[in-house]
Amino acid sequence: MTLMARHGIALVRALGLGIGRAAASIGQHRRGDTLGRDHGERGDVPGWVMITLMSAVLVAALLALAGPALEAMFNQAMDTVGK
Rank of each mutant, 00 (worst) to 15 (best):
V57S: 11
M73V: 00
I26F: 09
G43C: 01
G47W: 13
V12G: 01
A24E: 15
G32P: 04
T80A: 09
P46K: 04
G32I: 02
L65G: 15
S25P: 00
G36R: 07
D44A: 15
R31P: 02
Q28C: 10
A22F: 12
G20W: 04
R21T: 06
E41R: 07
L11Y: 05
V57W: 10
G47F: 13
D79M: 09
I19R: 03
L63G: 07
Q76Y: 04
Q28P: 10
E41K: 04
A61I: 05
Q76G: 03
F74Q: 07
A64G: 12
I51R: 03
L35G: 07
A14P: 11
D79G: 13
G20F: 05
G82K: 15
D44S: 15
L17P: 03
L53M: 15
R21W: 06
H7R: 14
G16S: 06
R13H: 04
F74I: 09
R21E: 06
A14Q: 14
G36K: 05
T80W: 13
I9R: 03
G36T: 06
W48T: 07
T80G: 03
A22S: 12
A66S: 13
I26A: 11
R30I: 11
M1K: 02
A64V: 02
I19P: 08
A77E: 09
D44H: 15
S25H: 06
G40F: 10
D38N: 09
V45D: 04
L65S: 15
R21A: 08
N75D: 14
R37L: 06
V12H: 02
L65Y: 15
L3M: 01
G27H: 03
L3E: 07
G8P: 08
R21P: 00
L65R: 15
G16E: 04
G8S: 03
